[in-house]
């Protein structure tokens, strides 16, 4: 079982792998990719639909230095991140207690679980229109969408985290003489923590997608705005810069959270073979 897990995890650590033993192939691959891309554009096969790689890079440097609608690239990025974090914090503040309550109390579960089940098959992005009707196109509606997206995984994971703590571990701690609070401090909390943390990880990555969607629908700043603007003025290079920045942030976010997870749940680490 442990072995299977570590193997299943492998592709997710793939970037390291590449650097370890497939250096050459990767470099070749990237060069071919860029050359092919450049070739297609230069030959005019893609028409005006695609800029050359170097143009993308130039555009990246340009908006890094020169403000676009009042802010440089970093400024827009920070705006988007701020939206995600505000919504995320709200989702954590409300989501964890609700999930925990549902895990502990069967009445709370009976009341709230069907509501969640009802909303689950509805993608959070579908709330955008309603959010705009309710809150206008400003900051509130964006935070609301991101909140909707990140709230559900936090609640579900907190609920499952509490529920799936091995019940015999409670026996184990009781027979060692634990009282009610010690039980929760020593078993409930650490036992459900990995699941709750995983929920927060998922919710951040969903939040990052949601902020993008919300900004695409209507925004005057933020990383999604850079893309929309590129679309409106027909600057494909700017669209691609936006996409690559978004990818880089998503990547860094997941690497950072994996690192954090290993720090805060050291017992989860596998025996490396």
């Amino acid at each position: 079982m442990d072995k299977m897990n570590s193997k299943a995890l492998k592709p997710y650590l793939s970037v390291l792998d590449i650097f370890q033993n497939k250096n050459v192939l990767s470099i070749i691959s990237m060069i071919i990719f860029l050359l092919l891309w450049d070739f297609i554009v230069v030959r005019g096969i893609a028409g005006s639909y695609l800029p050359r790689p170097i143009e993308v890079f130039d555009r990246f440097l340009y908006i890094l230095k020169n403000p676009l609608a009042g802010k440089t690239l970093v400024g827009h990025l920070l705006i988007s991140l701020k939206r995600v974090f505000i919504a995320f914090i709200i989702a954590v503040i409300f989501g964890i207690p609700i999930g925990v309550l549902m895990g502990f109390n069967q009445y709370a579960r009976a009341i709230m679980k069907p509501v969640f089940d009802l909303f689950k098959p509805m993608p959070p992005i579908a709330w955008i229109s309603l959010a705009i009707l309710w809150f206008g196109i400003g900051e509130t509606s964006k935070v609301f969408i991101i909140f909707i997206g990140s709230f559900v995984p936090i609640v579900v994971n907190s609920y499952n985290g509490i529920r799936l703590v091995e019940p015999e571990l409670y026996d184990a701690i009781r027979i060692l003489g634990a009282d009610y609070w010690q039980e929760h401090l020593e078993v409930t909390f650490p036992g459900s923590f990995p699941a709750i943390f995983a929920g927060m990880q998922i919710s951040l990555s969903i939040g990052w997608t949601c902020v993008l969607a919300a900004e695409l629908v209507g925004a005057r700043e933020g990383i999604g705005f850079i893309i929309v603007m590129g679309m409106n003025v027909g600057n494909v290079a700017q669209i691609i810069v936006g996409m690559l920045v978004i990818a880089a942030v998503a990547f860094l976010l997941s690497v950072g959270l994996n690192y954090l997870e290993r720090k805060v749940c050291p017992w989860k680490k596998q025996i490396e073979t």
């Binding site: 091995e166 015999e168 026996d171 027979i175 650490p190």
Partner: peptide, 24 residues
Amino acid sequence: FVFQKYMLFPWKTVIGNIEMGPKL
């Protein structure tokens, strides 16, 4: 009680598990 299925606290090291009783 020594459990059929071990029931050690997975989040505690060996020493953390053993000192749990005194800690409580």
